[in-house]
Amino acid sequence: MHVYIRVDGSTSIGTGHVMRCVLLAEMLIQAGAAVSFLMRTGQGHLCDWMEQKGFQVFSMREGTFTQSEDADEVIAILNDQARLDWMIVDHYGLDEQWDNKIRPHVRHIAVIDDLANRKHTCKLLLDQNYAPNFEQRYDSLVPSSCQLFLGPSYLLLRPEFLHIRQLVRKRAGNIERLLVFYGGSDPTNETMKVLEALEFSRINGIYVDVVVGNANPVRSAIQEQCARLNFQYHCQIDYLSLLMDGADFSFGAGGVTMWERCYLGLPSVVTIVADNQRESTEATARFGAIWNIGFYDDVCVQDYVNVLHRALINPISMVKMSERALRLLGNSTEAGMHPVVKTILEG
């Protein structure tokens, strides 16, 4: 079986879409499928990094294209391939118009989405987010025959997260280690704002891990700031789960890593850095699994100072947040083949 994945990542888009598709690809490959990626180039793209990881990547032209133009370029690539089983698309700019043009060239289409704001013609749809009425919000957007995998119980998780969850520690609420991570590109530069807040707060006796990706355009400045403040700097790592497990509190964005933090019961303050994160972040905050500090445009350094102070003096709140996060993600796939992978393989 050969699976193709249409996804993009860049400094402006971020890397979350690519990272969750890489995880799904690794699961499929482990189960015996062949996987290829179709990705546009551009500032902060991850094509080279993915090729270094061993994936076959078809690099598409840099720029902005209509759905029809995008589909034409994909079809030109597919026409040179011998086997065309599944096309997985994880892209907010593509909908049923793109699907319908691709359909004659592949057996099945699968969609990964978060927004539930456009129609798709697909056999399978995955939305692993928690949101109001998440089980019904695609009812009018996909064919009745589409298999839906909705909610945190279908969270895509790397094996190390599953292992750590089995051994996850009960958090005492005291903060001795902080984690700062705003995604691979951090287009709103929240990392620097948090570093300023930590410096202003003059925290003593607290170990700080700061994580960035290769797509972060100011990573060198962040590294210099970390060295000056005696914080530990990490770039494009594959051990984020260990840092989450070791941390007592975290600063981060919404999206995939918010769910990973919740899965390990890590208390965190979440900044909404894109409109597509708003609904799930607000719903998760209402559940009590995170603190929502708001949309990045409205968040300043002093806000981060204030929320850190609030966390430091409220260990009971930290314990309760951890418990709520674990409860929210309690039914996530713990072992065995992920249902989406199984469905794709059964084709």
Rank of each mutant, 00 (worst) to 15 (best):
C235E: 13
D85E: 15
V106R: 14
S140T: 09
G288W: 08
I88R: 08
F161S: 01
A335H: 11
F287P: 03
P315M: 11
R137C: 04
K170I: 15
Q302T: 06
Y130L: 04
A172M: 15
S153D: 15
S201E: 14
P217W: 12
C122V: 12
N79K: 14
D303Y: 06
I109V: 05
N100Y: 07
V301D: 07
L24K: 12
M87C: 15
H108P: 00
I13W: 10
V194W: 06
F181E: 09
R171F: 01
M50S: 00
D303T: 06
V7D: 06
R40W: 04
E73I: 12
Y130D: 01
G151V: 03
G254E: 13
G14R: 03
L84M: 11
T281M: 09
G151P: 10
M87Q: 13
S36Y: 02
H163D: 07
V273R: 10
F249M: 08
E334S: 12
A215R: 12
D80H: 13
A34C: 09
L162A: 05
P152Q: 09
E135Q: 10
F251S: 10
C226M: 11
P143G: 02
S140F: 12
S317F: 10
G336Q: 04
M27K: 08
M321Q: 14
K53F: 10
G93A: 10
F37M: 11
I206V: 15
I29G: 05
G183I: 00
H108Y: 03
V212G: 04
Y296A: 01
R169N: 08
D70G: 05
V210T: 04
S145M: 11
Q147A: 09
S250H: 02
Q225C: 14
R171I: 00
L198S: 03
F55M: 07
F37T: 01
N276D: 00
A283G: 06
I237D: 01
R107L: 07
M258H: 06
S153K: 09
L141T: 01
R103L: 15
A82H: 07
A325P: 12
D275P: 05
I290G: 01
G54N: 08
I77F: 05
E334A: 11
S36A: 02
L157V: 04
Q43L: 09
T343G: 01
Y263E: 04
S185H: 12
Y154D: 07
I344H: 04
A221R: 15
R165P: 02
V341G: 06
L126A: 03
G265K: 14
I316M: 14
G9A: 12
Q166T: 03
L38P: 03
A71D: 07
L266V: 04
L242H: 11
L162E: 09
M321A: 08
Q43F: 03
